[in-house]
């Protein structure tokens, strides 16, 4: 467990760390929504802002890039699918598929949006303690009827708690299989099958052990929760984010 993944909390004392999580959560959702609506200039604006924040909160960029390797495959896949499926003026025409200008444009935009959203998420997770996030989610869900807000919040914080564990185990299993020459098998489906099952089983076992350890320490849903206090800065930042999102969309 020595090398940690990017998708987890990073201790720090930046303004983002100190921000009230309810406001941070709202800002994150606003940014993601604005991203979906934004065009290239809006996206560029957000990417620049995210870049500055990434450096500001001192996220280890080299690790981040390594972690996002698999995500880039997904992006590539989306890009290719989009470029081929969008009708328009042909760019390259092979026997039965056509790559269109509109498709390339469209695919690039979609990929850009996806990566922006992922980075917004990464920054949010890196600067937010799961316990605080849990309290914030609970607070937002409280006005909704028929939603068991405490249970939903616990589940969310557990998912975040487990992300690094699953990734770490996937990596360990992959290494163990490499040591036994799995790279000689070229079929990616075969390799996926061989890695998915052991990782799943190990994740269940770890989850089980964790559940017992939590039980042993009196785990209940009704716990002392983190006290949230909003200050003037939180309102200022939220105002800034709203302004920024409007800028992005128009």
């Amino acid at each position: 467990m020595a090398s940690m993944t990017a998708f987890s909390y990073l201790t720090g004392a930046s303004a983002l760390h100190r921000m009230d999580v309810r406001f941070k959560l709202a800002s994150m959702i606003l940014c993601s929504l604005a991203t979906v609506k934004a065009q290239a200039d809006g996206l560029l604006l957000l990417t620049l802002a995210l870049g500055i924040i990434l450096v500001y909160i001192r996220l280890p960029l080299n690790i981040l890039i390594r972690e996002l390797r698999y995500f880039s495959f997904l992006l590539l896949f989306v890009f290719i699918a989009r470029s081929l499926a969008t009708p328009g003026e042909p760019f390259i025409k092979l026997s039965f598929v056509t790559l269109t200008y509109e498709g390339i444009n469209d695919g690039a935009l979609v990929c850009w949006r996806l990566s922006n959203i992922v980075f917004v998420g990464i920054i949010f997770v890196a600067t937010t303690r799961p316990s605080a996030l849990k309290t914030a989610v609970e607070w937002w869900l409280r006005p909704l009827p028929f939603v068991p807000e405490q249970r939903v919040a616990v589940m969310m914080s557990l998912v975040i708690r487990f992300m690094p564990v699953i990734l770490e185990q996937a990596r360990e299993t992959a290494d163990a299989q490499k040591a036994r020459g799995v790279e000689n098998r070229k079929n990616p489906f075969y390799r996926l099958k061989k890695i998915a099952l052991p990782v799943l089983i190990r994740t269940f076992i770890t989850a089980d052990e964790l559940a017992v350890a939590m039980d042993a320490r009196c785990y209940t849903e009704k716990r002392t929760s983190v006290s949230l206090t909003a200050c003037r800065n939180d309102w200022l930042i939220l105002g800034g984010v709203i302004l920024f999102c409007c800028l992005m969309v128009v």
Binding site: M1, S8, Y9, T11, R129, P130, S131, R161, T206, E209, L210, V212, A213, M214, A216, R217
Partner: peptide
């Protein structure tokens, strides 16, 4: 205190 020290960590710090 359980045998596996890693799987009883619950906190982020």
């Amino acid at each position: 205190v359980f045998q596996n020290a890693d799987s009883q960590i619950v906190g982020e710090t």
